[in-house]
């Protein structure tokens, strides 16, 4: 492994000049962001601003077209050729990198043919080769941690939205990730269920998990974020502490966005 493939060990995410386009549309335009280990970074911005795409690039669900993106110290999804150009990593290596990155989807993406416990233990059993007994015990512990130990044997379609998302969080945690990515994890939920999911995320942050969170929940950003990043039209236009960005935004576009979200 060349030195170029490894970044500063204190950073969970290090994005430098990341570019991405869908056809002629520039979705990410020279995005740079460092996330330190233990930090909770909340990304806000209007829809179409590129925040979800940026998050998906962090575990290589999307490919980047330019720049460099290090996650957990490694160039994610790419390796550096001897001549300095980038080539896509082998599928095995990408899968290995993803084991250390938890991802929580807006629409849960639970496996409907497996019970809650089955969802949580699938990856440990099939990727980490954990024993079934051990994986079950750890799975139960994780489901207890997100407050639904009584739903171990329940199938996703019998769970409420909030319960589903908590199972999804437990499923991601089962791989013992160093970094958790949340893509609008509460946007598909009925309002009364948003709180229970945010509570789990809050606890996770309090335990010191490194998190990058795309959300419209300004209360969560204010209370939990170490930093808030505002994106618009594929660029980071403003970043700082929650107080700086949410209460005294420098940018007119941030102010306009916040006035719409906060009413």
């Amino acid at each position: 492994m060349t030195g170029d493939q490894v970044s500063d060990g204190g950073l969970a995410v290090q994005a430098a000049g990341v570019h991405k386009s869908f056809g002629a549309l520039k979705v990410l335009d020279d995005v740079s962001l460092d996330v330190a280990v233990g930090e909770v970074v909340v990304i806000i911005g209007p829809s179409g601003s590129g925040k979800t795409t940026f998050l998906r690039c962090m575990n290589h669900l999307e490919r980047i077209d330019g720049g460099k993106l290090y996650v957990n110290g490694h160039l994610i999804g790419y390796r550096v050729n001897p001549d300095g150009t980038l080539a896509e990593e082998s599928h095995a290596e990408i899968a290995r990198q993803r084991q250390e990155i938890g991802f929580v989807f807006q629409h849960f993406n639970l496996f409907p043919h497996l019970t809650a416990l089955g969802n949580v233990k699938l990856a440990p059993v099939c990727v980490r080769r954990a024993g079934r007994e051990q994986a079950s015990a750890e799975g139960r512990k994780l489901l207890a941690r997100v407050g639904i130990e009584d739903k171990c044997d329940t199938y996703p379609r019998q769970l409420s939205g909030g319960q589903r998302q908590r199972v999804a969080i437990a499923r991601a945690l089962a791989m013992k990730p160093k970094l958790m990515l949340f893509d609008e994890a509460t946007s598909a939920l009925d309002p009364e269920m948003v709180g229970e999911v945010l509570e789990v995320m809050r606890e996770l942050a309090a335990e010191g998990m490194t998190m990058v969170v795309v959300t419209h929940e300004m209360g969560f950003a204010r209370g939990v974020a170490s930093r808030v990043v505002m994106m618009d039209q594929g660029r980071i236009i403003e970043a700082g502490t929650p107080a700086q960005v949410l209460d005294e935004p420098r940018e007119e576009r941030t102010r306009a966005f916040l006035s719409k979200v906060l009413h």
Partner: peptide, 27 residues
């Protein structure tokens, strides 16, 4: 089978064939 199923499996570090075998094909 929804594409999100494969994405979820792969985001957990499963290989493409593992996602196919354990997530997509059963559905």
């Amino acid at each position: 089978v929804d594409k999100g199923q494969t994405e979820a499996a792969e985001s957990l570090g499963m290989r493409h064939w593992q996602a196919m075998r354990h997530v997509v094909l059963p559905q």
